[in-house]
Design a protein around this nucleic acid. Structure first.
Length: 583
DNA sequence: GCCGTTTTCGGCCCGACTGTTTTCAGTCG
């Protein structure tokens, strides 16, 4: 268990504990703190290293009491008050809370009356049918808990945005065809384009909600129906993700869309703002007393509250509302702005297709140019290119560019040059100088300290031929942790050596991530958005990269490959001449 | 326990669905 996981779990268990005691407000405070720590990841420890309790208190939702707990944990490896809680209430609260339908009050009752401490105990008392006789429980709650355990065991946790988005779009299309449906969209974390999504939030308007609900719970991929109400239903789909559908009258669509786009922290801040103005905000509109002020559109609601409308990607409950109030929200990069993909692989190394096929696919997708960035010789197991093969590939690219006509994107000579453990590169400088554009990346020796990894990358960036650092943190969501990096030092190095950082759009990478994009934007470090395409199909992933850029408050100016080919060349040549430019 | 256009005290988002209840508590999003 990582530090972050422990702290999140500890805060979550305190939240539930206080809920069991019927405390009205501490549960929420601990809940928000847990979410905040979970979202910040290793930045929590960075903050603590930098300035202890004082710096921890600067983090959102962290005050004196929780900062002291975190400080105690980093200093001693323990938290005395948490140990005391576990002694007084020796229950795996966190594990039990993941069962659908099991909340703090029932966890308390199950422990106090039947001694249930963990999932195994719960399964046992359910089998013995002991739960149904407890006050507040019955036969149905027994069934519901048993079903909850089953669903939890079969759930695969959070899902990658890139895997769920196509499914959600398909479901929206099918629901839209139901007679009586006027509008149907996905909302929630999908609409915010979070890198992972926990469930699919759907919203529809219809004059006949019950008909829509019936069709929804009977979709072919529905495996279990959690709830089937008149205006809200919830199901588990066969791929292990839940989908919720809410149906409302067409005239309140704007208010409901706002409400279900969230996230939770954003909505709470917005509703608290409404209260300060003597108003009430819910999914049916903005009200003064019983009088409806507006519900027609998201924009109307934000405007009535004195705010510009933050794009969905920014609604995370940090500082977007204060920017909305001061009219300083960024002019986000529009979808479809990227003109060329500067990281693509072919069958010269580990891609599936020829250079020509990739250039055709890119053109079909609407791109003007692509860089061919096959792996280099250190990656021998996938036939990485040495200097000779780079030169040979360059000749093929020259030929294709000469005969390309209208059906191929312009092809740039490039490579995904491997960064060796000492920070040197595995192509010689002469070869690097012959390329139109040079990307570098780490592919091995991932177990480094923060200091070593940071030094290694900065040394690699200091090579005067380098233009872009690919997938800078090396993470693979759900498979590999990012190597530890001093991101501020990396950004300073990128700025000093005029190296762009990549936003890699591949679904399990999405690297840089949103927080780091925002740091780069603030630091004035230029960015590329690339798909890392290994197949012609992969160009469709570009919009995922654009989504990350938007979540990081990036504008068109921040993204180099929104430039035309000529502008790109001019940008590259500010660093060094490109004598062999193919285009 | 956190936080500040209410700033070191006094507030703290809101509603649908379910099941166990006879009017509501618990859970969820």
């Amino acid at each position: 268990m990582t530090d972050t996981e422990f702290l999140t779990r500890m805060l979550f268990e305190f939240s539930y504990w206080h809920d069991m005691q019927d405390d009205a407000f501490k549960p929420r405070a601990y809940q928000l703190a847990a979410e905040s720590i979970g979202a910040l990841g290793h930045e929590v420890k960075e903050a603590w290293r930098k300035g202890g309790i004082k710096e921890l208190k600067e983090l959102p939702a962290i005050g004196q009491a929780i900062a002291e707990k975190i400080d105690e944990y980093f200093r001693t490896g323990r938290i005395r008050s948490y140990d005391a809680l576990k002694k007084k209430f020796p229950v795996d609260i966190y594990g039990l809370a993941h069962v659908q339908g099991l909340g703090p009050k029932h966890i308390r009752d199950l422990y106090e009356q039947l001694g249930v401490k963990n999932l195994k105990d719960l399964e046992k008392v359910l089998r013995k049918q002991q739960v149904r006789d407890l006050p507040g429980f019955g036969e149905k709650s027994e069934e519901k808990l048993a079903r909850g355990i089953l669903l939890m065991k079969r759930s695969t946790g959070r899902h990658l945005l890139g895997h769920i988005l196509p499914l959600a779009e398909d479901i929206v299309t099918r629901l839209s065809r139901i007679p009586g449906v006027k509008q149907c969209v996905y909302a929630g974390s999908l609409r915010r384009r979070q890198e992972t999504v926990g469930d699919i939030d759907l919203l529809a308007t219809s004059s006949d909600p019950e008909r829509v609900m019936k069709a929804f719970v009977h979709l072919p991929e529905v495996e279990t129906v959690h709830e089937h109400g008149k205006t809200r239903s919830s199901v588990r789909l066969s791929m292990g993700i839940d989908a919720d559908l809410r149906v409302v009258p067409d005239k309140v669509f704007g208010a409901t869309l706002q409400y279900f786009t969230g996230d939770k922290r954003h909505n709470i801040l917005l509703r608290e703002r409404a209260i300060r103005q003597g108003l009430l905000l819910n999914e049916y509109g903005l009200f003064k007393g019983k009088k409806l002020l507006t519900c027609a559109s998201e924009e109307a609601i934000y405007k009535r509250l004195g705010l510009d409308t933050p794009p969905p990607e920014l609604r995370v409950g940090h500082d977007e509302l204060s920017a909305a109030e001061r009219h300083t929200l960024p002019d986000l990069l529009p979808y479809g702005s990227v003109k060329g993909d500067l990281q693509t692989q072919t069958n010269w190394s580990d891609g599936t297709s020829t250079i020509r096929d990739m250039a055709v696919a890119a053109k079909t997708y609407g791109l003007d140019y692509i860089a061919i960035t096959d792996h280099t010789q250190s990656l021998a197991f996938i036939n990485g290119l040495d200097e000779k093969r780079v030169a040979k590939q360059g000749k093929e690219i020259d030929t294709l560019n000469k005969q390309r006509g209208q059906s191929l994107a312009r092809i740039l000579k490039s490579a995904e040059v491997d960064i060796k453990p000492d920070g040197s590169l595995d192509l010689d400088d002469e070869t690097l100088a012959s390329l139109d554009c040079v990307g570098i990346a780490i592919h091995s020796h991932f177990s480094m300290t923060e200091k070593e990894a940071t030094k290694r990358i900065i040394r690699a960036m200091s090579n005067p031929h380098v233009d872009c650092l690919f997938h800078p943190t090396g993470r693979l969501i759900g498979k590999r942790e990012p190597y530890p990096l001093d991101m501020k030092a990396i950004l300073a190095g990128a700025k000093k050596y005029r190296v762009a950082l990549e936003i890699n759009a591949f679904p399990d990478r999405t690297d840089l991530r949103d927080l780091h994009v925002r740091m780069a934007v603030d630091a004035g470090v230029p960015l590329f958005i690339n798909t890392d395409a290994h197949d012609p199909e992969h160009f469709t992933l570009l919009s995922l990269g654009e989504a990350i850029a938007r979540r990081g408050w990036a504008t068109k100016r921040d993204i180099i490959n929104t430039k035309s080919l000529n502008q790109l060349r001019a940008w590259l040549e500010k660093k060094r001449p490109r004598p062999n430019w193919t285009a």
